[in-house]
Design a protein around this nucleic acid. Structure first.
Length: 184
DNA sequence: CTTCAGATCCCCT
DNA sequence: GGGGATCTGAAGA
């Protein structure tokens, strides 16, 4: 094998640090249609159909008041996986710039995913992602997000779900042709 | 230490 | 569409 060759797989190219090191709202939009790939005992794949952006100066952002024990992964650099628990559920985020992240709310099953994947808690359960995975790198670990050149047909934005602050801001994005995405 | 709100889910009506 | 389950992290006393 040529070691210089870029890593390519049938699931597409692993998104680079450069992809995450951009405006968080752009990253949230661009993550739609990308593949979450978890390679453990079996390989599980799902395609992202719903995201939310949590940005600087955002009162709903866990990093709003700076770094804490919970959100320390949000300060480890672009492409870090941030997993937190709320209401006994796990939620997965992709860290973009310092103290900013994109919550992945829903995906479509592609391979070895039998449980439901609509909703951040259910998605993590179906993909087997836990708080053990908090702080891992999406650039080089068993969990990655990849681009297989698929593009969603159309993207819609709305206020975020379950968030009381910044309700006037459209920071949620979802693929509108996906049947499991409810509108607003 | 105690309180409480929360980036949710499920079941009931 | 409404309320209870469930539990962790953060903030206040």
């Amino acid at each position: 094998m040529n070691s210089v060759t870029k890593k390519k797989t049938p699931q597409g190219n692993v998104l680079s640090r450069r992809f995450y090191d951009r405006d968080t709202v752009l990253v949230a939009r661009d993550l739609l249609g990308k593949l979450i790939v978890v390679e453990r005992n079996e390989r599980r794949i799902a395609r992202i159909v719903e995201t939310e952006a949590y940005v600087a100066g955002d009162p709903a952002n866990h990093a709003f008041r700076g770094q804490t024990k919970r959100n320390r992964s949000m300060f480890k650099g672009p492409g870090t996986l941030y997993v937190y628990a709320v209401h006994a559920q796990n939620c997965m985020n992709a860290v973009t710039r310092l103290g900013e992240a994109v919550l992945v709310r829903a995906a479509q099953p592609v391979e070895n995913v039998s449980e439901r994947t609509s909703g951040p808690g259910l998605l993590c359960r179906a993909m087997g992602i836990t708080r053990e995975d908090d702080g891992k790198s999406l650039l080089q670990s068993e969990i990655s997000i990849r681009d297989d050149r698929y593009s969603p047909v159309s993207i819609v934005s709305s206020p975020r779900i379950g968030v009381t602050k910044w309700k006037d801001r459209h920071l949620r994005f979802f693929v509108s042709d996906n049947p499991s995405s409810h509108c607003e």
